[in-house]
Write a protein that binds this DNA or RNA. Structure first.
Length: 427
RNA sequence: GGAGAUGUGGCCGAGCGGUUUAAGGCGCACGCCUGGAAAGCGUGUUGGGGGCAACCCCUCGCAGGUUCGAAUCCUGUCAUCUCCGCCA
């Protein structure tokens, strides 16, 4: 959520930002609404002030045992007028807030210009794709041939875009998650959290999924309208909702391994096979709550944490600086990591690390108290560390052997009971 | 699912419908005192909004309502705790 005071003083920047994101200018509309609201508020406060004064006089008169009924006359007209202005003010306030809540975050100056994902800027590459002397299989073929990935069964149970894995492959995914969690907690200083994945609409609003992107999420028919989280970012970041922490508590670093639920509305026909795009997948997420001055530093740190996982797994990847046209709603700046997938002969997204400034903190009212006792909004960041399902895909395809078996990466062996190779189960 | 209890500034805790503009205490910050400290004394200490400013408005879990006037009365709702039932 943008600061209305800031919008008032930076109308050009607001409209320029909308343009960069490929949207229409909005500042004149906001300004006129804000002006109307402040006008009503001024008149309302004047009346409230009168009411308070008279009310006090009534109290004083009664205390002395005097008759105060003559004071009621003016109060009788003030009362309904106050109520009317209150309603007017509330309506304008709601209208303004509802509108501002739909505006995306202001992009960092370091974000490259570009119209869509084709114009993202590659920052660096790491690792060299393995040269195979055989035709690489796609992970879904590998998994099905191993007898440990079963999309038919998943479809029977839940419909399209779900997966069923079993045996060593299921364990390999768990191994990946444990390896990631252990690395982030033991090496990178994150605190492991087991958060709820079923959250209130208010929580989804806090991180920016609502009100604009409700169509992407699964709702329950629970009377509280609980929703399934599309990422643990939602639960973890909302730790700060209506909370004031001490400056010395920062940074707060959480990581969590949770299932994520996405409708994938609008992606019909894309990645219809396999684990790449499913309604339910597991992800290890990192969230940082930091002092505003540490935002940039924290973003680089988190990007490093995500890269480190790929490096330890020896998976080739590249880093992209997302361009203005491809940036998410709440983000100021985002780096994506794309991992090499031999069967697709291309890099595919496996992590996304974003800094959100005070955008989310403002929505959820998350603050810290500085040394002088003043409160400020915290800055929030989130990054995948990594998308576990897609990491499984990457390991399968990059570590596949000609006979269809999969070599277990060295760092995962301790988590696989020492198993070195995943082979087909006998049918 | 059923029954009951409780929600008041960072914490504890008062609060007959009108000087509550939320007592008192604890904690914290600053000052006085001291060689230094403790104790003592004094001052400040919820959060948000509007205004150049003086200052004003809102905020007692949340949302409605009653009233000239609500922390206080009414309704709904949420959270916490206790007991019963069910349950991994």
């Amino acid at each position: 959520m943008l600061d209305i005071k800031w919008i008032r003083e930076n109308t050009d920047a607001v409209d320029l930002n909308m343009k960069k994101r490929g949207a229409e200018p909005v500042s004149s509309y906001i300004l006129s609404l804000d002006e109307k609201r402040r006008d009503v508020m001024g008149r309302l406060q004047e009346l409230q002030s009168q009411r308070n004064k008279i009310s006090k006089e009534v109290g004083q008169a009664k205390a002395k045992g005097e008759d105060a009924s003559h004071l009621f006359e003016s109060m009788k007209t003030i009362g309904p007028e106050v109520k009317k202005l209150e309603e007017e003010e509330r309506a304008l306030q709601t209208e303004l807030k509802d509108f501002v809540a739909t505006l995306p975050n202001i992009l960092d100056a370091a974000v490259p210009e570009g119209k869509d994902d084709t114009e993202n800027v590659e920052v660096r590459r790491w690792g060299t794709p393995r040269t195979l002397n055989f035709e690489p299989k796609a992970h879904y073929d590998l998994g099905e041939d191993l007898g440990q990935l079963d999309f038919e069964t998943a479809a029977k149970i839940s419909g399209s875009r779900f997966a069923w894995s079993s045996g060593d492959l299921a364990r390999l995914e768990r191994a990946l998650a444990m390896f990631m969690l252990d690395t982030h907690t033991e090496q990178n200083g994150f605190t492991e959290v087991n958060p709820p994945v079923l959250v209130t609409p208010q929580t989804m609003y806090g991180t920016g999924q609502l009100p604009k992107f409700g169509d992407d999420a699964f709702y329950t028919n629970d009377e509280r309208d609980l929703m399934l989280t599309p990422t643990a970012e939602v639960s973890l970041t909302n730790y700060m909702a209506d909370r004031i922490v001490q400056e010395s508590d920062l940074p707060i670093k959480f990581c969590a391994w949770t299932p994520c639920f996405r409708k994938e509305a609008g992606s019909a026909g894309r990645d219809t096979r396999g684990l790449i795009r499913v309604h339910q997948f597991n992800k290890v997420e990192m969230v940082q709550i930091v002092h505003p001055e540490k935002s940039n530093e924290a973003l680089q740190f988190m990007l490093g944490c995500a890269e480190d996982i790929l490096q330890k797994l020896n998976l080739p990847y590249r880093v992209l600086n997302l361009c203005t046209g491809d940036m998410g709603f709440g983000s100021e700046q985002t780096f994506d990591l794309e991992v090499w997938l031999p069967a697709q002969n291309t890099y595919r997204e496996i992590s996304s690390c974003s800094k959100c400034g005070d955008f989310q903190a403002r929505r959820m009212n998350g603050r810290f108290k500085d040394k002088d006792g003043k409160n400020h909004f915290v800055h929030t960041l989130n990054g995948s560390g990594l998308a576990v399902g897609r990491t499984l895909v990457a390991v399968m395809e990059n570590y596949q052997n000609e006979d269809g078996s999969i070599t277990v990466p060295d760092v995962l062996k301790p988590y696989m009971g020492g198993k070195e190779i995943i082979k087909a189960v006998s049918k």
